[in-house]
Amino acid sequence: MDDLAKEPENAGRRLEPMPEDWTRALAVVAHPDDLEYGCAAAVAAWTDAGREVAYVLATRGEAGIDGIGPDQCGPLREREQRASAAAVGVSTVDFLDHRDGVIEYGTGLRRDIAAAIRRHRPELVITLNFRDTWGGTVWNTPDHVAVGRATLDAAGDAGNRWIFPELTAQGLEPWDGVRWVAVAGSDRPSHAVDAAPGLERAVASLLEHRAYIEGLTDQDPEEYARAFVTSAASAAAPRFDGRPAVAFELFPR
């Protein structure tokens, strides 16, 4: 059944706390800024607790600002993403160099993400909404859908030495240690992280994407970043004991 046509089965249920018995996470998304639109407060909380989080971006976001050509936009957005990650304690940011706006789901994308999972060896993998819509009302982009779906698949691919044997030949041994894939921005979340401790750093993290924000809206960038982050965290609060939260749909493996 189309995701526009049915109510999520867990709609309205209390969000459970995210698992905490892990040490390494890998976040895999399509573009610079994808993680900052609502997920960075959770990352800040995790790095504060001494957990290791790395980012992998499928593109450099080179098609993301109408007034700046791709050759200039890609390096600019890469710099913004690295500064944004640093604001929440993340020092490792890798780019896969797929073309922004035309990412294709398939074995090539799965292989690249499986390679990243083998390289970083996370227990928790994080990605973004892979469904056709945001909450059944706003159409999602093909890049988000492709990367989200490929990440869910690659979490299994990474542990199977026979799917992409060329990775083993390159020195990337199989990694079957992914225990969960957490999807941010889902309309059917099951778990959450308290956003309050990392909220200010999440605002600062989104604000590092200043050139992107300035190309997106005439609103003051700091006002825009604060309003978006606090609104997203507040939306999850009624299902998390009244606390602002970052919500995830959690797929155990």
Rank of each mutant, 00 (worst) to 15 (best):
G89N: 05
S91W: 01
T92V: 14
V93R: 07
V93D: 11
D94E: 15
F95V: 01
F95I: 03
L96R: 08
L96F: 03
D97F: 05
H98I: 00
H98G: 06
R99Y: 03
R99L: 13
G101T: 10
V102N: 03
E104V: 13
E104N: 12
G108K: 06
G108F: 00
L109V: 06
R110P: 11
D112G: 13
D112I: 01
D112A: 14
A114S: 06
A114H: 10
A114D: 10
R119Q: 15
R119L: 12
H120I: 07
R121S: 06
P122K: 04
E123S: 13
L124Y: 07
L124R: 09
I126D: 03
I126A: 01
T127C: 02
T127W: 01
T127G: 04
T127H: 12
L128G: 08
L128C: 14
D132L: 12
D132G: 07
T133L: 00
G135S: 03
T137I: 07
V138F: 15
V138Y: 12
W139C: 11
W139Y: 05
W139V: 15
W139E: 14
N140T: 08
T141N: 11
P142I: 04
P142T: 10
P142N: 08
D143L: 04
G148M: 03
G148P: 07
R149G: 07
R149F: 04
R149W: 05
T151F: 00
D153E: 08
D153K: 05
D153P: 06
A154R: 12
G156T: 14
D157P: 12
A158Q: 10
A158M: 12
R161P: 15
I163H: 10
I163M: 02
F164N: 05
L167C: 11
L167T: 13
L167A: 04
A169C: 05
A169Q: 10
Q170S: 13
Q170G: 09
G171S: 04
E173N: 05
W175M: 07
W175E: 02
D176E: 12
G177I: 13
G177W: 04
W180H: 14
V181F: 09
A182I: 08
V183H: 10
V183D: 09
A184M: 08
A184T: 02
S186F: 05
S186Q: 06
R188C: 14
R188I: 00
P189A: 01
S190K: 01
S190P: 12
H191A: 09
H191L: 07
H191W: 02
